[in-house]
Design a protein around this nucleic acid. Structure first.
Lengths: 106, 106
DNA sequence: CTTTCATTTCAAGGATAATTGAAATATAAA
DNA sequence: TTTATATTTCAATTATCCTTGAAATGAAAG
C-alpha cells in the first residue's frame, strides 16, 4: 500500500454512499453482492452506484467479477487491513496510545 | 465518533499535505508544533497551512492551543485510535480477517 | 501607541468530485 | 436474430475542495 493508494482509499471512504457500500459488502461476506442489490441497498441510481463502485474498486477496497449479466462486488478484507496498517504504522509510527484506544494489543 | 465524524476524518486524511501534517505532529509528540513550523515542514504557504490545519482540527484529529503569538497544534492520538476503531468495528463488523492483516490480535 | 510577528480570514479563481439522464455495452433469453 | 436485463459510460450540470494573494486579527515588543 503506497501513500497514493492510501490517499485514494481515504477519499473513497469519505462519502456516505460508499461507506454504506462497504458495510453492505462486509455483511454479505465472501459471496459478495451484484451491483443492482447494492444500488437498492444504498438507495442510489444504477449510474450513481456504478460511479461509487468504480471509485471503491479503483483503490482496491473492493473487487469486481462478472457473473453472467451481473457484476459481483466483494469487499477485500486484506486491503482494508492494509489500510488500517497504513494508518497505524505509516501515519502514526506505531504509536502505542493509538493502538490502546481502539482496544488493540498487537 | 459518529459516522459524520468519521466521514470528515477520512476526507481530511485524503490529502497529501494533511497527511504530512499528521506525520509531522505524530513525530513531534505531546509538545506539538507551531503553525509556522508545520508550514515549513510541508512546504506550504501560511494561508494554505491554516486551511489544512482547520480541516484537521474540525474533525478532531488534531488540537489547537494558542501560546503567545503562536498556535500550537498537537495530534490527538485518542481520536486517531477512535477512527481506527470505527474502521475496524463499525465498517468491518470486527471482521477477524481485517485484524489479522494488520498484525492485530485483540 | 506604533510596529512587528504569527496566524487566520476572506474573496476570487481554478480544479476536482458528485449528480443526472440518456446512450452504449455485455450477456442471456425468446 | 430480436428482445430483455444488468450494468457501465458519457456529457452536462451542479457542488465541493483547493490555491492564491491581500487584508484582518491577536499578541508581544519597542
Amino acid at each position: 500500500m503506497t501513500e497514493d493508494d492510501a490517499l485514494a482509499a481515504f477519499a473513497a471512504l469519505s462519502n456516505q454512499s460508499r461507506l454504506s457500500v462497504i458495510r453492505a459488502l462486509v455483511k454479505a461476506g465472501p459471496s459478495g453482492l451484484p451491483a443492482g442489490d447494492i444500488a437498492e441497498c444504498i438507495g442510489a441510481s444504477p449510474s450513481q452506484t456504478s460511479f461509487h463502485l468504480s471509485s471503491l474498486s479503483a483503490c482496491g477496497l473492493i473487487t469486481a467479477e462478472r457473473r453472467a449479466r451481473q457484476m459481483i462486488y466483494r469487499i477485500d478484507f486484506q486491503r482494508v487491513g492494509e489500510l488500517v496498517g497504513f494508518l497505524l504504522d505509516d501515519c502514526c509510527a506505531a504509536n502505542p496510545e493509538v493502538r490502546e484506544c481502539c482496544g488493540l494489543r498487537r
